[in-house]
Design a binder for these strands. Structure first.
Length: 643
RNA sequence: GCUGACGUAGCUCAGUCGGUAGAGCACAUCCUUGGUAAGGAUGAGGUCACCGGUUCAAUCCCGGUCGUCAGCUCCA
């Protein structure tokens, strides 16, 4: 029998009989691997694990623990779901059904409106299909034959997809499983029986190709796993995320509100939310001053002329609010702070000796956002950017970018976010600024990241029209990613405002301009922060740090002394004088997620002590007030985030 | 903005197949002065999102508007 040499990722190579499948190779390695292998990569091409191998090759095997394994698993799951839908609704037509970060979806066109109950029916049908354990069979058709096939199916969406495929495509792949055939590049799991535990999560509206002018479809989301525990864990994760929802916690903890009558997407900070925000902003300002920034304040409105010069009226108008007329002149509320900062720049003749200038402002901007996209604190119409603009020379840009990256890391770590991901967005098609500028700026972004030893991904063509950028995404306690920081070059505004500095050579030069926001916006940041900590803020940020609870009115005097001592130390303290039992008060402060409760009664007054109860930890026993204060103060000073 | 669902007391939610509404928590008063997650009694609270229509009668049915939620698209 002829042999083939198969090289595995660890570099080891072995000879097998020609025609062996990846699954059989897996078996030869270990039974467990064979059981868990979902998909194979043969010489860089993804293939089913029952594909015969006829040539020497490099082989990689993927299980559910690999991204590629997961993707296949979910992709096949979406096919299975579509099959179940087709069985229940024979007239159904199908759009696209990919795997996504967490699970899969399929866009479906049926007349009937699907409800939660329908999802249960579909799930039941899926279970039946899984039990049949039908193999996923690949079939290749010519473009013409594929068109005929889907024409028979009356599925205009698939026809459109095929139509969009390259004219030279010789073979269009279809997958069939138990009588259900779908257009699909593949590859798939060997059979439906591989899909073990799944749940359909939701159904919502979508559009064919994401275009609201095209056909409306219904999108069913689902998730599937090879192990029961994985599914249970995932469903628990969803529950946990719901519990942490900042909109819910914002109400529960009395942090902020939004008033539909007064205007959606506009945030009202209550005393406690404002307190947290104030701590964040204080810290932010101090750190900026330490890092060589100066702070600015600028107005909220400016004449149309300014926004014309800046280009906002031609590029950003749909996000700006209608102008107001003042002395027969149109004024616009600012959607960005940059033009104002530039005006300040231009109040003086700048020398290269003045650069870099780093100017920061917690600038509140207003942008029109479509009503359907508003979301608690995360997507609003009025928000405060932790904005800064850096004006510098060509020679300075790389160091400046490095500093911003370091500063950003420092800020995120200070707030307890450890995991950051970097994305460099490069030149889109339509741009301002010449190629050389783009090239230089993009390289400086990459070099800065490399200099810091940070890995990054490239978002090809994802830059703004005015310059390339670095976006930083952070991961929260539930491992969810949020896009927050951004560092953007701007070749447009210095040009439009004719910004200059006098160089060493005595001639005028154009400064480089970098916009950057570290936290993004204070509103969004606080939304993420609330969810990250599930409302239990670390002591340094907590709106109320300590609640003092006397056992009864008899100890009010002693409790008042404690309260006064804490206030003297600038500790945010509440004196609970309510006519309630301490069990009731403890429950109340516990649900308000206050870090410490100090309980004082007869024992404490006699011993001149306090009893400390820590949020989520319970009774810590008696202690001297001075000891407690010094520990608390050190935790605040160090911005200790582990509580 | 688009699709769908929803909008009842400060909060969380019942309810009325058309006859102007109810619970728990919170709040107020009183009793109780209590030792680590809810002591008791009494009471006050609602133009049932808003505007129209149908009807003897609308919180309920119909239309519109606003808003919220799940998505789509977009973004800090």
């Amino acid at each position: 029998m002829e042999k083939v040499k198969i090289t595995l990722p660890d570099g080891s190579a072995k000879e097998y009989d020609k025609g062996i499948t990846p699954l059989e190779v897996a078996k030869s390695i270990s039974g467990r691997l064979a059981k868990e292998t979902l998909i194979a990569e043969i010489d860089g091409i993804m293939k089913e694990i029952n594909t015969p191998i006829n040539n020497d090759c490099e082989l990689k095997l993927y299980t559910f623990n690999d991204e590629k394994g997961k993707e296949t698993y979910w992709h096949s799951s979406s096919h299975l779901m579509a099959h179940a839908v087709k069985e229940l609704y024979p007239e159904a037509k199908f759009g696209v059904g990919p795997a996504i970060d967490n699970g899969f979806y399929y866009d479906i066109d049926i007349n009937e409106k699907l409800s939660e109950e329908d999802l249960v029916r579909i799930e039941k049908k899926m279970k039946e299909l899984i039990e049949k354990n039908e193999p996923f069979k690949r079939k290749e058709l010519s473009k013409a034959d594929a068109l005929v096939f889907f024409n028979e199916q009356k599925d205009e969406y698939k026809l459109e997809l095929i139509d969009g495929l390259d004219e030279n495509t010789t073979a269009i792949s279809l997958y069939n499983e138990g009588g259900f055939t779908d257009l699909c590049l593949g590859p798939h799991l060997p059979s439906t029986g591989y899909i073990k535990y799944f749940k359909l999560l939701s159904v919502s509206g979508s559009y064919w190709r994401g275009d609201e002018n095209k056909a409306r479809m219904q999108r069913i989301y689902g998730i599937s796993f090879p192990k029961q525990k994985m599914l249970t864990d995932y469903l628990e994760f969803i529950e946990e995320a719901k519990k942490r929802d900042h909109r819910k916690l914002g109400k529960q903890l009395d942090l902020f509100s939004i008033h539909e009558d007064a205007g959606p997407g506009l945030i009202y900070w209550h005393p406690k939310g404002a307190r947290v925000r104030n701590e964040i902003e204080d810290f932010w300002k101090k750190e900026h001053l330490k890092n060589g920034y100066d702070l600015l304040y600028s107005p909220h409105i400016g004449k149309a002329q300014l926004w014309e010069t800046s280009g906002h009226l031609s590029h950003f108008k749909e996000n700006m609010y209608s102008p107001m007329e003042i002395d027969e002149q149109d004024y616009y509320v600012k959607p960005m702070n940059c033009p104002f900062h530039i005006l300040i720049y231009k109040t003086d003749l700048r020398s290269y000796r003045d650069l870099p200038l780093r100017w920061a402002e917690l600038g509140t901007v207003y942008r029109y956002e479509k009503s359907g996209v508003l979301h608690g604190l995360l997507r609003v119409r009025g928000f405060t950017q932790d904005d800064a603009h850096i004006f510098c020379t060509k020679e300075q840009i790389e160091d400046e970018i490095i500093e911003v990256i370091r500063f950003s890391n420092y800020m995120w770590k200070s707030f307890g976010f450890e995991s950051l991901k970097y994305y460099v967005s490069t030149r889109p098609e339509k741009v301002t600024g010449n190629d050389e500028l783009w090239e230089q700026a993009t390289n400086s972004l990459k070099k800065a990241l490399e200099h810091e030893g940070l890995e990054y991904e490239i978002d090809e063509g994802g830059g703004a029209f005015y310059g390339p950028k670095i976006d930083i995404k952070i991961k929260d306690a539930l491992n969810r990613e949020w896009q927050m920081s951004t560092i953007q070059f701007d070749f447009n505004l210095p040009e439009r405002f004719d910004m200059t500095y006098i160089g060493e050579d005595g001639k005028e030069h154009r400064p480089f301009m970098v916009h950057r926001a570290l936290l993004g916006s204070i509103e969004r940041f606080m939304g993420v922060l609330i969810e990250h900590y599930a409302g239990s803020f670390p002591v340094w940020l907590a709106p109320v740090q300590v609640a003092v609870i006397p056992v009864s009115q008899n100890y009010f005097d002693y409790a008042q002394k404690i309260v006064s001592s804490l206030l003297d130390e600038n500790i945010r303290v509440k004196f609970d004088k309510r006519n309630e039992k301490i069990g009731y008060k403890i429950r109340d402060w516990e649900t308000q997620k206050v870090p410490y409760m100090l309980i004082v009664g007869d024992k404490e007054e006699t011993n001149n002590t306090i009893s400390i109860r820590k949020h989520k930890h319970g009774d810590l026993g008696e202690s001297k007030l001075d000891d407690f204060i010094s520990e608390l103060k050190s935790s605040i000073k160090n911005r200790n985030n582990n509580n």
